[in-house]
Structures are given as structure tokens and as C-alpha cells.
Amino acid sequence: MGYRLREDELRQLFEMWNRDYVVYGPKCMAGEGMYSDTDVVRYERLKGFEELEWEKKSAYSFKEAILPITQILFYFTEGEVKEAEPERRKPALLFMRSCDIHALKRLDTVYLDNRFEDSYYARLRKGLRLVLLGCSESCDNGFCVSMGTNRTEEYDAAMNIKTVDGQVQAELTGSMDGLDAWLDGLGAGKTETAPDFVSENLVKVRIPEECGPEHVKAGLWKDYDSRCIGCGRCNFVCPTCTCFTMQDIFYQDNGRAGERRRVHASCMVDGYTDVAGGGCYRNSKGERMRFKVLHKISDFKKQFGYQMCVGCGRCDDICPEYISFSACVNRLADMGNAEKEVR
């Protein structure tokens, strides 16, 4: 059992949520797109329902809300180190698609369950409430069905939003504390409802059963030496990429005082694998592509039991060279099938 809400009731619901939470969701940023006079959808703080972009997939993932692009860890002087205050003190509420909720599980695995807990991530993750945005149809480049991330039950509330006869309506269900009592008090109509989930994508991906030496040494990786320009956009929009680099910033008025930051990094950009003495582990673009792809579909699974990639398709959307991650994975699968036929 759930509730049917009109647009005015949705606005009141957002007002209530904003009193208790910092609300984040996909928002259309006018004039801030990749090219001049273009818009972009990315996660930002939402002050009201009218700011929620519920029809288009966000170009950038949700992770900026709990894993800031630039995060100050601590300040230092000649004789003192002081940990930075949390970026927010109130709990957060996050509007997410099913694939992104699965991506959050990947972030939790890396930052909370991987040998030790990352306290900076944990304090922003604590108290997080998830509102599932139902998907009534597939996005262009998504392949969540192939990755098994098109459905989820890991949410606090779920919302299907539609326009009916020119009027915005929503169906809401969930188990958030106090939500039912508030909606009953609002007089919202009750209805039988369930979240919308995509059952088929235009893009279909076949994951190799096992990636071995033949996949590592495959000639296809050389194709990306000339195609990839090493911009790293595929990593920066990915909801499951977790790598960062460290920066020490020294203040001009006192060269012995400053701050340490961690900043999102990319395995596809120059300098990522540089080591002392001038060495570089993966100098060519093809080698970097190999590392990224095999980590997403094989190496992570060997360690944690499931693929890292959730099939959101953002990497395919953003690449200026039209390199397709999904097409690359299918090429690897075809290699395995060809080898079986030879045997």
C-alpha cells in the first residue's frame, strides 16, 4: 500500500524533508553543460520539488553528495594537526535510480568493508536515506538489466513520478520513520503501488565467464591507444570509481601551515601510475583501458563476489571519442566464445 500525491502535496513533502535532511537529487544546471549555452543534469542540493529532474538521467553520478570531488581531511601548522569539520552535520536524503543504489553498495564495500573503515566517508554515509526514483523506460546507453542492477529493494522510500493530463502526479511507498503518519495527516490518497523497474535495455552486454591471460594480452587493447585521449571523463562520471589522489596545500602567508585534501582521480589520465624514479606502470591508453575494464567486470568480482560496473551507461554518454565500455565488454565475451569453438 502506498500514496498518490498531487504536485502541491509533493511540494509540501519536500518542505518536510528539508527540515530534517539535506536533500540531494538530480538537478538541471542551466548553462553549465559541456558546451556553450548547454545544460547538464547533476546531483545538487534540492530546496524544493520543482528542482528535481525526474525524467532525465544525470550526467554525473550521485557520489558527489557523499564523496566530495575535493575533500579537506585536516589542517596543519608547525606543531598542530586539526581534523576538518564534516561537510554537513544533518543526515542526507538522496534520490537515486536502481543502478545507483547498487553503485552505493560498491562504494560501501570499498570504503567501509575493505580491511578498514574510511572515517571521512563513513561520517557522510551515516544516516543516509535513499528514495528510489522508478524507471518506467530504459535510458539510451544503460545496460542495467545485463548487470542485474535494474531492480532493488534497498531503499527507504520509492517514488514513481509521471505527468497525467498535464498534471504532475506521484506514487509513493516506503518505510521511512514518520512518513505514513505525515502523509495521512496531509490527507494523501492511498493506492496500491510498486516501484517501476526497467525489464529490458536497448544495450545488452555479455560478461565473459572468466577473464584470463588471453584477455589481458588481447590485441584489442591497442585499438584504444589512438582513440582514447586520456581525459578521464569516464571515471569521473562513474558511480563506482573510488580512486583519489592526495594534495598538500601550503598557505602563502605561512609556508609551514596548510591543509591536506583528497581529490577524485582517474586511472585513465597521465600520471596516475607514476612512481618514484620516473617509472610508469601503464603508460599507454590501451593499457589503462584494459586495467579499467577488467577491474570493473572481473578483478572486483574475484575479491567481493559481484561485478563493480552497474550498467548506468554514463561512461558511454560522456566519452568525447565515442568509446563504448559496453561494446568493449562484448568484444571480450566474443573472444571467449571463439576460443571455445576452437577447442
Rank of each mutant, 00 (worst) to 15 (best):
M1H: 08
R4M: 12
L5T: 08
L5Y: 07
R6A: 11
E9F: 09
R11I: 12
R11P: 03
F14Q: 03
E15M: 10
N18Q: 09
N18T: 05
Y24C: 08
P26Y: 06
A30D: 02
G31I: 08
E32L: 13
G33V: 02
Y35C: 06
D37E: 14
T38C: 11
T38D: 13
D39Q: 09
V40T: 09
Y43I: 02
Y43C: 01
R45S: 04
G48D: 15
E50W: 01
E51I: 03
L52E: 06
E53N: 11
W54T: 00
K57Q: 15
K63I: 06
A65I: 03
A65G: 07
I69C: 05
T70D: 02
L73N: 12
T77A: 14
E80L: 11
V81G: 05
E87F: 13
E87K: 07
R88C: 06
P91E: 05
L94W: 05
F95H: 11
F95M: 10
F95N: 05
S98D: 05
S98W: 02
H102N: 15
L107A: 08
V110G: 04
S119K: 15
Y120L: 11
Y121C: 04
R123K: 13
R129T: 07
L133I: 14
F143W: 06
V145N: 00
M147C: 10
M147V: 04
N150Y: 00
T152C: 02
E154H: 10
A157H: 09
A158Q: 03
A158L: 03
N160Q: 08
I161W: 00
T163D: 06
V164Q: 13
G166L: 04
Q167H: 10
Q167W: 05
A170P: 01
L172R: 00
D177I: 02
W182Q: 00
L183H: 05
G189V: 11
T191W: 04
T193G: 01
V198R: 07
V198S: 09
V198H: 07
S199F: 03
E200C: 10
L202S: 13
A218N: 13
L220V: 09
Y224S: 02
D225S: 00
R227T: 14
C231M: 10
C231A: 14
G232E: 07
G232S: 03
C234M: 06
C238W: 11
T242V: 14
F244E: 00
T245A: 09
I249E: 15
I249D: 14
Q252F: 09
R260G: 11
R261M: 08
A265Y: 10
M268L: 15
M268W: 01
G271W: 08
G271K: 05
Y272I: 00
D274N: 12
G278E: 12
G279P: 01
N283Y: 14
E287P: 01
M289G: 04
F291S: 08
S298Y: 14
F300M: 11
F300T: 14
F300P: 15
Q303N: 12
G305T: 10
C309T: 09
C309A: 13
V310C: 09
G311R: 01
C312N: 02
D316H: 04
S326F: 11
A327W: 03
V329N: 08
R331D: 11
L332D: 01
G336C: 03
K340A: 11
K340V: 12
E341S: 06
R343Y: 10
